[in-house]
């Protein structure tokens, strides 16, 4: 490959954090983590990034895997999309996450692509992010000086900008298992069924309380500079018994919560249309499963 860089492949997390410490984080240049490489190698080749050093995470087996205990799902940063598909229990309480993994890239990409890589790629079309946002996930960021936990909803600061301090590594993504009376769904609209970049991604999670909607989460991909929650639309649903009219109104509100662009895949206008149609559909489906 044309790009020129050093590569270190640490054996332990501490070594990795050490290697990353002092990195001029994010953006171009400096030292950057390398997980599955499915973004990084493509970006290197296209010369969108030019790190001087990569820190390969491939030997940090402790960062890979899904553990469910004490009502919480803890997912190592290096967990791949295929790991999600293979897990026996996730489909039960996080079908949205499994759904996105099914429509994520092709098999080889799913075998390599990690969840943390997806989040840290900063792409507004990152497919795992809407589902994780709707699940109220939190991410753990580590550096030699310690770790901190950041809600995913506070992680993204702007287009390709996030809360990571220079040299910070994401080690875990975790969320509470949704309550019994809850339902979550994800839908990816793209121009092709297999292996395509998302035009609109919608994740919805609802919890019911006494026949009403207790909590509502609507997260939208590829319709703003970052993956975004439609908080105003969520608020319209909370505490209400959902009717088709209310769901439609909330779906229209979701359109106001986003700020899509025109690109070669679709116009902003079409994206808005689909935010409305898909939000309405997914909320309706999630609600139907609860009632």
């Amino acid at each position: 490959m044309y790009a020129d860089f050093d590569l270190v492949i640490p054996e332990t997390l501490d070594e990795a954090l050490e290697a990353l410490a002092g990195a001029v984080g994010g953006g171009n240049g400096g030292t950057q983590p390398l997980a599955g490489g499915t973004n990084m190698i493509v970006d290197l080749r296209a010369r969108r990034v030019a790190p001087s050093r990569l820190v390969g995470l491939g030997r940090l087996d402790g960062l890979r895997g899904i553990r469910i205990a004490d009502g919480r799902v803890r997912m190592g940063a290096r967990t791949t999309m295929s790991d999600i598909l293979r897990h026996p229990d996730l489909a039960g309480h996080a079908p949205s996450l499994v759904d996105q993994a099914r429509v994520f890239g092709g098999q080889m990409v799913r075998n390599a692509a990690t969840v943390a890589g997806n989040i840290c790629s900063g792409s507004p079309a990152a497919d795992a992010v809407p589902a994780l946002l709707a699940l109220d996930a939190e991410v753990t960021l580590a550096s030699p000086s310690g770790t901190r936990v950041v809600p995913l909803s506070e992680f993204f600061l702007g287009y390709k900008r996030d809360a990571r301090a220079p040299g910070e590594l994401m080690t875990e993504i975790a969320w509470d298992i949704p309550p019994a009376h809850s339902s979550n769904r994800f839908y990816k609209l793209a121009l092709r069924k297999g292996d395509a970049i998302t035009v609109v991604g919608v994740a919805v999670a609802l919890a019911a309380e006494d026949g009403k909607c207790g909590t509502a989460r609507i997260a939208l991909g590829a319709v703003a500079p970052i993956v975004k929650r439609a908080t105003a639309a969520e608020a319209m649903l909370c505490g209400q018994a959902l009717t088709p009219e209310l769901i439609d109104a909330a779906a229209r509100q979701a359109v106001d919560d986003v700020d899509p662009i025109d690109d070669i895949r679709a116009s902003a206008e079409y994206r808005r249309h689909c935010v409305h149609a898909l939000t309405r559909r997914l909320v309706t489906q999630a609600w139907e499963r609860l009632t």
Binding site: L7, I9, G37, I41, G56, G58, S82, Q107, M108, A112
Partner: peptide
């Protein structure tokens, strides 16, 4: 045993 795209893997990472 797991398929990957070899164009997206750096050689050193499969040591």
């Amino acid at each position: 045993g797991e398929a990957i795209d070899s164009c997206l893997a750096l050689t050193w990472t499969v040591a």
